[in-house]
Simulated scan of single mutants.
Amino acid sequence: MSVMSALPVAAATLTITAAFKPDPSKPNHNMFENTTPNTGFCLNYPNFCRNGSLFSLRAAPTIYATQPIPANHENPRQGVMLKAPAEWREVNVTHSATGRQETVRIRINGLGASLVTDPVVDLVGGNVSISEAHALLFGTNLSYAPSPCKGLGPSWSFNKVAFDFFWAFPTSSECAKHAKFTIPTSRLNYIEISYQLITPNPLNMSAGQYTGTITYTMGPHQDFDMGDNFLPDDPVLTLNFILSVDHVLNIEIPPGGNNIALEPKGGWQLWSVGRRPEKLMRDQTFLIHASSRFKMQLACERIIGDTCGLSNSRQHEVPINVSVTLPNGLRHANGASVHRQPLLLSGAGTELFEPTQYVDRKPGTLHFEIDKQYTAEMLFQEGTYNGSVTVIWDSEV
C-alpha cells in the first residue's frame, strides 16, 4: 500500500457578498442581490443554477483516505460518504460604523467533490471503457446520489483517475456510496458547496457595509463529514459575509418652496369683508425619494417651548406649529401611516420612519400653522412676522 501525506495549508476561507441598491422600476423588490462570483458547479453550469436559484463555491482542502476502501464494505463510513450542514444557521453581521447588528441565515443545500483514485479501469479488472468503469466501481457512477441525497444537475466530468460529482442535501443526513471493488488509494481533491441565504430587510438597515463570519468544522462527525476514512488537511471552513447597503434619501422642494407665507383659510380677502381670521396656515408639498429609515427634526432661529417662533419688529413672538404628512410606503415604526405628525425640537414622535417599499419621488406635505389664540394676538400688532424654520430629514438612525 502506498502512503500519501498532506502538507499543512491555511484554513479554507470563502467570502459571500450581497448588495442592495434601490431600483425605481422595482419599488417592491426589497431584497439583497447575491453578488458572489460562482466557482465550481455553478460556474460550469450557469444556466442550471440560474434556473434553480443556486449559488456554489469551491474550497480547496485536500482530503486523503487514510486506508484503502474495501470492496463491499458494510460500514458506509468506510467508503465515499458525505454529510452537509443542511439546517439553517444564523450569522450576525455588524455595521462597520455604527456596530448595529442584523441576522443572515444560511443553509448548505449541496456538497460535491472530485474523487481521485488509481486508474479506474484497472480497479474494475479492465476490458471496459472509462465511463463503464466508473459505473462498475460503485454500482452506478457518483453522479447518481444515494438516498436521501439527490443528484444535482448534469453529469459531471470524469477521466481515467477522477470523477467530479455534486449531491443535493435536503436534510443533514449521511449519504454514502458502497464500493464494489477495492480502492487502494484515494483522495477528494476539493469540496464544493451550494447554499441558500435569507438576508434581512435592507429597508430597515442603515447604509454602509455589514460583515460577519460563520465557521464550520470538517472531519468525522463534524459539520462537513466525509466519513471515517477521509480526513481533511484542515478541519475548518470559514465563510465571511459582506453585505453592502446603498440607500437613497433625497428631498425635492419646488422653486420658491422655501419661502412660506401664512394666510387664513380662504385668503385675506375675507377679512376685508369683516370676517376675522381664526388661524394662519400654509401647506408646502415636497417630493421624497427614500429607501431607508430616517428621522425628522426641527431647528429654529427662535425657540418657543418645543417648537419654533415668529416675531415682529417689536419682538412680539408667537409659536408656529409644524407637522408632516408622508406618502404611502413610509410608516411609523408601529406600522401607522404618517398624517400631520407634529415636528418638534425634541424629535418626539418623529424618531423613526420606515419604508415598506422604495418610495421614488412621491409627494409629502409640510403643514405650517399658527393657532387661534396667537393669530388673535397678531391681529392687534403691527408689522410683519417672520422667522426661520429648518426641517431636517436624517438617515442616521
Score class of each variant (00 low, 15 high):
264 P>M: 10
264 P>D: 10
265 K>Q: 11
268 W>Y: 11
271 W>V: 13
274 G>H: 10
274 G>K: 13
275 R>W: 02
275 R>Q: 12
275 R>K: 15
277 P>C: 10
278 E>V: 08
279 K>V: 15
280 L>N: 07
280 L>V: 14
282 R>K: 12
283 D>F: 04
286 F>Y: 09
286 F>V: 06
286 F>D: 05
288 I>P: 01
289 H>E: 09
290 A>F: 03
292 S>E: 08
294 F>N: 07
295 K>C: 03
297 Q>H: 13
298 L>S: 05
299 A>Y: 00
301 E>P: 02
303 I>T: 14
307 T>E: 04
307 T>S: 05
307 T>L: 00
308 C>S: 13
309 G>T: 02
311 S>C: 03
312 N>H: 11
312 N>A: 10
313 S>H: 15
314 R>C: 03
315 Q>T: 09
317 E>K: 10
320 I>K: 03
321 N>P: 00
321 N>I: 05
324 V>C: 08
325 T>N: 09
325 T>F: 07
327 P>C: 07
327 P>G: 08
330 L>F: 09
332 H>P: 11
335 G>S: 06
335 G>Y: 05
337 S>K: 14
340 R>K: 12
340 R>F: 11
340 R>S: 15
342 P>E: 10
342 P>Q: 12
344 L>N: 04
346 S>Y: 01
346 S>D: 01
346 S>H: 02
347 G>M: 04
348 A>S: 02
348 A>Y: 00
